[in-house]
């Protein structure tokens, strides 16, 4: 079956996102965890830091088992990566979520706010890719 990795991988993402929800009712995406992890001065933020450590460990486990790294586009300069990170960091906090917070948790509880966010960020991302391809 085609797209099996995507479907199983997506299922794991949905399961991982739902775990803090069913455990203690916490709804959070990666950008929320990442921002909280920077100040682990209360229980919530300490848990955020632990989640981020788990995320890095997940990547490491994958790397050790797969050997080969996924290819990275080297045609993009570091300045562009830096600009991308800045916009992603600022925008995800201002908008209150990223691909996981609004995408998985938000759509997964049928939030109109999150649906609006997903349409806007996917639209903006598609236009950005189109513009970049035109140069």
């Amino acid at each position: 079956m085609t797209y099996l990795n995507e479907i199983i991988g997506g299922g794991l993402i949905g399961l991982a996102s739902a775990l803090p929800l069913i455990w203690e009712g916490r709804i959070a995406g990666v950008s929320g965890y990442a921002a909280g992890a920077l100040r682990p001065n209360n229980a919530n933020n300490t848990h955020s830091l632990i989640f981020i450590i788990g995320l890095v460990l997940g990547g490491l486990i994958w790397k050790l088992n797969q050997g080969a790294l996924p290819p990275i586009s080297t045609q993009t300069s570091l300045w562009v990566w830096g600009l991308s990170g800045l916009l992603v960091g600022f925008g995800s906090r201002l908008g209150g979520g990223c691909t996981s917070g609004h995408g998985v948790c938000g759509l997964g509880r049928a939030s109109p706010r999150s649906l609006a966010s997903v349409i806007l960020f996917m639209g903006a991302a598609m236009i950005t890719v189109f513009v970049r391809r035109s140069f």
């Binding site: 995406g29 990666v30 950008s31 990442a34 981020i52 995320l55 890095v56 990547g59 586009s73 993009t76 562009v80 990566w81 600009l83 991308s84 990170g85 800045l86 916009l87 992603v88 960091g89 600022f90 925008g91 995800s92 906090r93 201002l94 908008g95 209150g96 990223c98 691909t99 996981s100 609004h102 706010r113 609006a116 966010s117 997903v118 806007l120 960020f121 996917m122 639209g123 903006a124 991302a125 598609m126 236009i127 950005t128 890719v129 970049r132």
Partner: peptide, 23 residues
Amino acid sequence: LVVGSVIFGIGWGISGICPGPAL
């Protein structure tokens, strides 16, 4: 929400990377 989502989308489109995959 609107401004933040659009800025996030532009950033995501530039590199193809969002917070989860980056970390």
